[in-house]
């Protein structure tokens, strides 16, 4: 039995792109040569700006995006699921084990279904329960775990606030008893006090139900608080990966450093200016050659500004991986 629940090996995901019907078809690599192992019971964080490929990676692990190269293996207790060549029947089985929580609780819930029906739908689609009584029982159990009242189950989503809606989405994701959850920006749309509430709930459910999370977020202070291990993505590549304490106290990659310094300090007297990255994330359609970060690197060495250095992670201290090009940049 493996101690990892998900292994991602040399994974790339590309999309076809055609500007108009006359022009040539291009491939856009959204996720490029990713290797990660997610340990059972961990809270794995994935951070980066929009366009860095966080969501695509999360969806590829769930089998919701086609895998172009490499593979993703999900290790269940009894068996492994290889997502590169998975049959439709196996996929159905896999869906019970791995689920997704969306970002926007206002868009994720159908306005025409009662909360009970929303939470029960996965059970019905996957044929998990055999009778209505059993379905109701499971819906009530998971709703109670997500701190929803029984009386809430009869109502429609419009009657709920953002935080309550997010608890409904979480209950829906958990009702099939999955082992692995991808939470894609699940607290980004919430107010700070509600955000704290949902994060505490996710942590508590992790303990109660033995869950493993892949937590996708652009908010580093949130990730620092909840995640055990964090990977920083930039333009489809992982540029740095380390246990969260190590990453936040001792960042090595200039992109991570810039991200950390961009968090506005709560102390009004600390007006230190953020390390400003010049410009914006380049288009994935023509990424820079060599090190993808070199166009925005504050102190590129001569070699990498020519684009001659290959990307690849090296281990600088135990479990702390940094892209080899940037390990010496300031």
């Amino acid at each position: 039995m493996s101690e990892n629940i998900v292994s991602v090996n040399n994974l790339s995901v590309s999309f076809d792109y055609q500007e108009n019907f006359l022009s040539k078809k291009q491939k856009i690599k959204a996720v490029n040569n990713i290797n990660i192992k997610i340990k059972k019971g961990s809270f794995f964080g994935l951070v980066g700006e929009s366009g860095s490929g966080k969501t695509t990676l999360g969806r590829a692990i769930l089998g919701a995006n086609k895998i172009s190269e490499g593979n993703v293996i999900f290790h269940d207790d009894e068996r492994d699921f290889d997502l590169t060549n998975i049959s439709a029947k196996e996929m159905k089985e896999y869906r019970k084990k791995a689920q997704l929580i969306f970002q926007d609780p206002y868009a994720a819930l159908s306005p025409r279904m009662t909360v009970r029906d929303i939470i029960a739908e996965p059970l019905e689609v996957m044929n998990i329960t055999s009778s209505r009584e059993e379905t109701d029982q499971r819906v009530r159990d998971i709703a109670a775990k997500c701190r929803l009242n029984l009386e809430h189950l009869r109502r429609f989503p419009h009657a709920f606030s953002g935080g309550q809606r997010q608890r409904i989405s979480i209950a829906r994701a958990l009702v099939s008893n999955p082992k692995f959850i991808v939470a894609d920006e699940s607290v980004a749309a919430l107010d700070v006090s509600i955000q704290a509430d949902i994060l505490n709930l996710l942590k508590q459910l992790q303990k109660e139900l033995n869950l493993t999370y892949l937590f996708i977020s652009h908010d580093l202070s949130v990730v620092a608080h909840v995640c055990d291990i964090v990977a920083v993505m930039y333009l489809g590549h992982i540029v740095e990966m380390a246990p969260s304490r190590e990453l936040f106290s001792n960042p090595k990659h200039s992109y991570t450093k810039a991200l950390l310094s961009s968090i506005p300090s709560i102390d009004p007297e600390n007006k230190s200016r953020a390390i400003e990255l010049i410009g914006e994330i380049p288009s994935a359609m023509n990424p820079p050659s060599g090190c993808v970060f070199r166009t925005r690197c504050p102190n590129p060495t001569h070699d990498c500004s020519n684009g001659k250095i290959e990307m690849g992670l090296i281990e600088v201290s135990p479990n702390h991986w940094v892209d080899q090009c940037c390990v010496n940049c300031k």
Binding site: E49, L259, S261, S262, R273, A274, E276, L277
Partner: peptide, 10 residues
């Protein structure tokens, strides 16, 4: 994004 937020705030 945070990096762009920092630019706009400055």
């Amino acid at each position: 994004d945070v990096t762009i937020q920092a630019q706009v705030i400055n």
